[in-house]
Design a protein around this nucleic acid. Structure first.
Ligand SMILES: NC(=O)c1ccc[n+]([C@@H]2O[C@H](COP(=O)([O-])OP(=O)(O)OC[C@H]3O[C@@H](n4cnc5c(N)ncnc54)[C@H](O)[C@@H]3O)[C@@H](O)[C@H]2O)c1
Ligand SMILES: NC(=O)c1ccc[n+]([C@@H]2O[C@H](COP(=O)([O-])OP(=O)(O)OC[C@H]3O[C@@H](n4cnc5c(N)ncnc54)[C@H](O)[C@@H]3O)[C@@H](O)[C@H]2O)c1
Lengths: 221, 221
DNA sequence: TTTTATTTGTTCCTATTTTCACAAAAAGTA
DNA sequence: TACTTTTTGTGAAAATAGGAACAAATAAAA
């Protein structure tokens, strides 16, 4: 039964996305039905966690049987919203940006980078993966025009705040930021920072404290 | 006073890394001393959180004054282990891998990719950013030889598990994985998954549930 | 039909994380 | 020196998240 008011944590959302990807993989392998115990073996998530994550949104399984994969994929796509088309804009077509632009992992599933901007005259006009790189000068205007709602920032950190401001002015409501800066954004805009340097330093921290570490996620100092 | 036995959460470690980066930036701007309230304005972390994170490792501030930035930078570098040299190996020099290889954000601070491997004959032998791309066939052997302890996996997901196994056989103790798969690794190896597709879907989830969203990290369904 | 096997959905409990709030410390001021 | 202001470090409280455990549901077996 659907709940009246439930707060979904960001950790849950991350896991939903993880479930979806792996269910798709399983379906491709010909699996039709799966139970939470099997999911748990595959991913690093407890069976109870899997069931609980889903329970926030409804009842998708059959007791004594498990989950019909096709059905669950569709439910998850609906929950996450990836069954709809979302226009994405990329700003900063440098080394990382052009990797993102060429990456099929997004576009495979309705998440397609449709606009790209850079400040570098040599890049403007070039077409990568079917997307023409435009002048960042026209960013706000073009974002409004196209009704884009999601932005990926892969510019140098120095200009990332300015880019974010202009995206938001253009109506962007969700940002994935790769620049190593903490951006100031209004409450109604969602941001996720992909911070590779932090991630790498986390690995280093673990190594540096080897022997003193207790579990996979804890350290004993 | 240093604690006998304290467990440090991964969230704390991420924040330590964030603090370090921003303290470096502040120092460059000429700031000498900072208090937790100012840090809190700059980053998206409460002053109490900042103080508590640091308190797990010692007392670095001065009451009524704040934290001497130089001192704190050095303490954090020591805590994270980034004051030591760490050899890093990259596997899969494709679009993402070559961006990583060329990225100065890591190498600036003792985190240097020193070995790179690929399976593609056209890439093997090429030099990027001073690093010669080697044949992945010799991966385990070379990792042992060089005593590398950290590995970045940016190969296609299909081969990521195999690469991880060979890295671990070679003595790797920390992995940053960019391939969208859940890798099976032994307890004593640390792994962090940089999962951009999940992150992007998290943004989409927020947009898809707009209006029903309560706070920056919670959703009302 | 009854019994046995599974496996979900959910409640309740436990553990972890964050925030609060304040004594203790430092430095300036009178 | 005594008083004021500021800000840390931290124990206690509040908020969150995770996990165990079990009734309810389903299907298969007897
Ligand atoms: N390369 C990596 O592997 C990597 C890893 C982690 C984080 N990052 C971060 O991602 C961002 C991009 O990194 P990169 O290595 O691709 O850098 P890059 O220099 O290769 O690319 C940056 C691009 O942004 C463009 N640009 C600069 N100012 C601009 C502006 N005002 N408007 C629009 N475009 C502008 C540049 O012309 C360039 O094409 C940086 O913030 C970096 O710290 C990169
Ligand atoms: N490009 C992106 O922006 C992006 C974003 C998110 C995730 N990823 C993930 O990162 C990984 C790399 O992506 P990419 O876009 O760079 O792909 P890519 O195809 O450009 O690069 C993959 C590289 O790995 C090499 N490779 C293949 N098999 C190998 C093996 N057995 N041993 C060593 N090297 C091998 C290939 O030769 C190639 O150079 C993928 O798993 C992808 O899903 C990429």
């Amino acid at each position: 039964m659907r709940k009246e008011k439930v707060y979904i944590s960001q950790e849950t959302v991350k896991r939903l996305s993880l479930y979806l990807r792996n269910l798709r993989r399983l379906e491709k392998e010909g699996v039709r039905v799966i139970c939470s115990d099997r999911i748990s073996e595959l991913l690093d998530v407890s069976p109870a966690q899997f069931r609980k994550d889903l329970s926030y949104f409804g009842e998708f399984g059959k007791r004594g049987v498990g989950y019909e994969i096709r059905r669950l994929i569709e439910e998850l796509e609906d929950i996450l919203g990836v069954n709809k088309q979302w226009k994405i804009v990329l700003i900063g077509v440098g080394r990382l940006g052009s990797a993102l632009l060429r990456f099929e992992g997004f576009s495979k599933f309705n998440l397609k980078i449709e606009l790209a901007f850079d400040i570098d005259k040599r890049k403007i006009g070039k077409v990568i993966n079917g997307v023409k790189i435009e002048d960042v000068q026209r960013l706000t205007e073009r974002v409004k025009e196209e009704g884009v709602k999601v932005g990926l920032i892969s510019t140098p950190p120095q200009v990332a705040q300015e880019i974010a401001d202009r995206l938001i002015e253009g109506g962007i409501k969700g940002i994935m930021n790769f620049a190593p800066v903490t951006l100031k954004i209004p409450e109604d805009v969602f941001i996720t920072n992909v911070d590779m340097a932090c991630e790498l330093e986390r690995v280093i921290f673990f190594l540096n404290n080897e022997g003193k570490v207790k579990t996979d996620s804890k350290l004993l100092s």
